[in-house]
């Protein structure tokens, strides 16, 4: 079995099994720990709507708070968007999703994908350096933070190399790229990448628990 066959076959299969099982394990096990009913009388009875609203509004710039977090905020927007564009709209990626989901969607030209991938990579490097040097981020960082950033950086690097056919034969580059993505899949449920899923219940809670008190969160 060649490295590519391994990456496309068993490694992919098992990493996806770990991804799916791990995500549901962590999500279910967290949400079901128990929810105490709040006995106080709500000021407003649209806590659900407030919760849903906060899911959206926490993605927006934060008004007065914005002045000190502008770099983090906008670099965060930029790299997330650039990554999602690269992941979701590169033609070979869509073929992959199609093979899993059974449907595809239109792709963007490769030149644009190359630019978005480079942007995401550059910003992630900057954020990695910031995490290692900024006192606030240093004191709250742990191994998870570094592993998580590396497993996102790795597929970007290997993806760009595979796209440009740089450094090794294409099937090796493709295999390494796939393996790096599979590493991300495997790490995903165990580290903070889970915020991809957890941010929704978390923001919802903020919105609804403050919302029932009449406070826009």
């Amino acid at each position: 079995m060649t490295l590519l066959d391994f990456a496309r076959g068993p490694a992919l299969q098992w990493s996806m099994i770990i991804l799916v099982a791990g995500v549901l394990w962590r999500l279910g096990g967290t949400i079901l720990i128990n929810a105490k009913k709040d006995l106080s009388k709500a000021r407003k009875e649209h806590a659900v709507a407030d919760g849903l609203k906060t899911i959206a509004t926490r993605s927006l710039p934060a008004h007065q708070f914005e002045k000190n977090i502008r770099f983090q905020h906008f670099s965060g927007y930029a790299w997330h968007i650039a990554l999602f564009v690269s992941v979701l709209f590169f033609a070979p990626h869509i073929l992959f999703f199609e093979s899993v989901l059974g449907f595809g969607w239109p792709s963007l030209p490769n030149s644009i994908i190359l630019i978005t991938a480079a942007i995401a990579l550059a910003i992630l490097f900057a954020l990695l350096i910031r995490r290692a040097t900024h006192p606030v981020q240093r004191i709250i960082s742990n191994a998870d933070d570094y592993i998580s950033i590396l497993v996102v950086i790795a597929p970007l690097i290997t993806g760009i190399l595979a796209f440009a056919h740089l450094g090794a034969r294409y099937e090796t580059l493709l295999a390494v790229h796939l393996l790096s993505v599979e590493a991300l899949f495997v790490w995903f449920p165990f580290g903070k990448l889970m915020h991809t899923a957890l941010t929704f219940p978390s923001r919802y809670q903020a919105g609804s628990s403050y919302g029932r008190k009449g406070v826009r969160a």
Binding site: D5, R8, Q13, M16, L24, L174
Partner: peptide, 19 residues
């Protein structure tokens, strides 16, 4: 080539149930 060579969606459903 970009599509995986993995076995089946059933395995993922099983993983979901187990998770």
């Amino acid at each position: 080539i970009a599509a995986g060579l993995w076995g089946s969606r059933d395995a993922l459903l099983g993983a979901a149930a187990a998770g």
